[in-house]
């Protein structure tokens, strides 16, 4: 497994990176942690004549918690998320999800930006960002723009980001209420058979708001709006959960792979969602 030859670039700031993207067009790809792209290059399934390494761009780093707004630079790694005390306090679902991505070495390299920008339906962060109603910040030759995470994914590996744009950060409001990220996988290092991100707010014994998103159950992450709505106003009891599952199952479209047939995934998705709801509710 040897990649084809390429030219390597390590721009020191964003304008330089954008200029390189402009210059090389379709021949260029940016690389963050590289743990999605490099295996594809080694299998020669991705041809990248010009590789633009973002590691030297300080502006893409850092976790900021400004009041209730949390911003993660694109180059923030899963390991940094896990280790960040502020995030653990203000958005524990991030740590919970990050811990279920790949393995320690991969998390040391894998970044938020890479995970969300790649468009791989197997990645966990895109689903989580649907749940959080995050905003993706991209910068291109025409300047910067914000794209709601829920409008970012078009199909597998196809996103709202233009080829000459770089995803610089993601931001979201610190979630309130109970949160849970539940993932079924075959083993450490695997993508999800089914995964659910759930955030619930609770007043007394009533759910006042709910956000539910699912991972690896369609060619894009799925924000199951109707599933969340099915919980609002309820005590998240059995009937409400079944209604949420039914709504979620109407929104997903799993396909068969080595993790099993679609029917199984559909069923597993329901179980995983029920678990996530129960856990989020218990924390709400």
């Amino acid at each position: 497994m040897i990649p084809a030859a390429f030219e390597y670039h390590r721009p020191g700031d964003l304008p330089a990176a954008l200029a390189l993207l402009q210059e090389h067009g379709d021949d260029a790809r940016v690389i963050a942690g590289g743990h999605s792209l490099i295996p594809m290059m080694k299998l020669r399934m991705a041809e990248v004549p010009h590789l633009i390494d973002l590691q030297a761009i300080d502006a893409l780093r850092g976790i900021t918690i400004d009041g209730h707004r949390i911003t993660l630079g694109a180059m923030v790694t899963q390991a940094e998320i896990i280790a960040h005390a502020g995030l653990t306090t203000h958005a524990p679902i991030l740590r919970e999800a990050a811990l279920q991505i790949a393995d320690p070495q991969v998390r040391a390299m894998g970044t938020v930006g890479g995970n969300v920008a790649n468009g791989d339906p197997g990645n966990d962060m895109p689903g989580l960002m649907q749940c959080l109603n995050a905003t993706f910040h991209v910068t291109g030759p025409a300047g910067s723009r914000d794209i709601p995470a829920r409008e970012f994914y078009e199909s597998a590996y196809l996103t709202a980001r233009e080829d000459d744009e770089i995803l610089t950060a993601v931001s979201f409001d610190a979630p309130t209420g109970g949160q849970a990220y539940e993932k079924q996988k075959r083993k450490i290092g695997d993508y999800a058979t089914a995964a659910a991100a759930v955030i619930l707010t609770r007043l007394g014994d009533r759910c006042t708001a709910a956000s539910i998103a699912m991972t690896n159950l369609s060619d894009t992450p799925i924000w199951a709006e109707a599933a969340g709505e099915a919980l609002v106003g309820t005590a998240c009891g059995e009937d409400a959960v079944i209604a949420a599952i039914t709504a979620m199952q109407a929104a997903i479209d799993p396909s068969e792979d080595n993790r099993g047939p679609a029917e199984f995934k559909r069923h597993a998705a329901g179980i995983i969602l029920a678990r996530a709801i129960a856990r989020a509710w218990s924390r709400a």
């Binding site: 690389i31 490099i38 390991a79 320690p104 991969v106 390299m109």
Partner: peptide, 28 residues
């Protein structure tokens, strides 16, 4: 060679990495 087995693990800076999935150029 696909970053699953960890036989190639080294410490780069202060993190464990799988050196089969790091280009030498990145490690410069």
């Amino acid at each position: 060679e696909t970053s699953h087995c960890g036989a190639c693990t080294v410490i780069m800076g202060d993190r464990s990495v799988k050196s089969c999935t790091v280009f030498a150029a990145q490690a410069d």
